[in-house]
């Protein structure tokens, strides 16, 4: 039961960029299209789950004074592994995500979950937490990407949905558009949360 709760909280109650307002760097940078957001979310999820599990295993070994350094080491290793694996076997994904993969290292969600959850809880729950938060992150990024792609390009996941005469609102897929879009979603989320 608790496993389920730890998993489900990441999907709405603590959905990372919207409720926790963490991990804004990839949220703003890669969500120009729904697919980009999805792949970035999946890569992050993989790293998050792996690092959560490993850190949870090592939580009694790592002295608290050097824990951040140890976490970063673990996280960075997984990120590099993901990058190399992607390059070698799924190069098209790597082409889309490109420079954003190394940025996962400094994504505060991963360090945040390691510090706030994995360092205090068992392996199973840490796995659930990592998976839940990761999937929540993926949903959020895909959602944001879909909105920006819909208005900015006129398509979702590459499929044109707007009529051919639609003049794309290109502001949405540019950097300032990401800020405005995220800001509006954050505002609406907190409005919904209030009621």
């Amino acid at each position: 039961m608790r496993f389920y709760q730890e998993f489900i909280k990441g999907l709405w109650k603590e959905i990372p960029p919207f409720k926790l307002v963490l991990g804004l760097c990839p949220t703003l940078a890669v969500t120009a299209a729904a697919a980009n957001g999805f792949y970035m979310g999946m890569a992050t999820t993989f790293v998050l789950v792996c690092s959560n599990v490993l850190i949870s295993m090592l939580r009694k070994v790592i002295p608290s004074k050097v824990r951040i350094a140890a976490y970063i080491l673990v996280i960075a290793s997984f990120v590099v592994i993901v990058e190399m694996m992607m390059k070698a076997y799924v190069f098209p994904f790597y082409q889309i995500l490109g420079i954003f993969i190394p940025l996962i290292v400094v994504n505060c969600i991963i360090l945040g979950r390691a510090e706030a959850f994995a360092a205090k809880n068992g392996v199973l729950y840490s796995f659930a937490d990592g998976l839940g938060i990761g999937i929540g992150f993926t949903i959020a990024l895909t959602f944001l990407g879909a909105i920006r792609e819909l208005f900015g390009v006129g398509s979702i996941w590459g499929f044109a949905v707007m009529p051919a005469t639609y003049m794309p609102f290109e502001f949405m897929i540019k950097a300032p558009g990401a800020f405005v879009c995220l800001g509006v979603i954050l505002g609406l989320m907190s409005l919904v949360g209030k009621k």
Binding site: L58, V61, I62, P63, K65, V66, A69, A70, L73, V74, A76, S77, V80, I81, M84, M85, K87, A88
Partner: peptide, 23 residues
């Protein structure tokens, strides 16, 4: 501290170099 950090560094380093070779 020193021992733990060294061990983690060594392990991750070894893992990375292995995967690098493979890929």
């Amino acid at each position: 501290m020193i021992v733990v950090l060294s061990v983690i560094s060594a392990t991750t380093g070894a893992a990375l170099s292995y995967i690098n070779n493979v890929t």
